[in-house]
């Protein structure tokens, strides 16, 4: 049975490397574009809002419109 243990380890290292480079690339890019800012955390506050009530008002306004 022919085997490829060493190439597989190199592949794993290679994937680690790509992962690392990709991670750093996107981190730098997101800092530059201002994504790492405050408003990117909006969804976590919005999901707490009592959407049922909010949407009821929206529904009412739709009826008016």
């Amino acid at each position: 049975m022919h085997d490829y243990v060493y190439p597989s380890i190199f592949l794993a290292y290679f994937m680690f490397f790509i992962f690392l480079v990709g991670g750093i690339f996107f981190l730098v890019k997101s800092l530059r574009h201002g994504y790492w800012g405050k408003n990117s955390e909006d969804p976590k506050y919005r999901m707490l809002a009592d959407d049922e009530q909010e949407m009821t008002t929206r529904k009412a306004s739709e009826v008016e419109g």
Binding site: M1, D3, Y4, V5, P7, S8, I9, L11, A12, M15, F16
Partner: peptide, 15 residues
């Protein structure tokens, strides 16, 4: 099953 595939699975399991 091939040893190299086992090695890859181990590496990613740790990740």
């Amino acid at each position: 099953i091939s040893q190299w595939l086992q090695t890859i699975a181990i590496t990613f399991s740790l990740m």
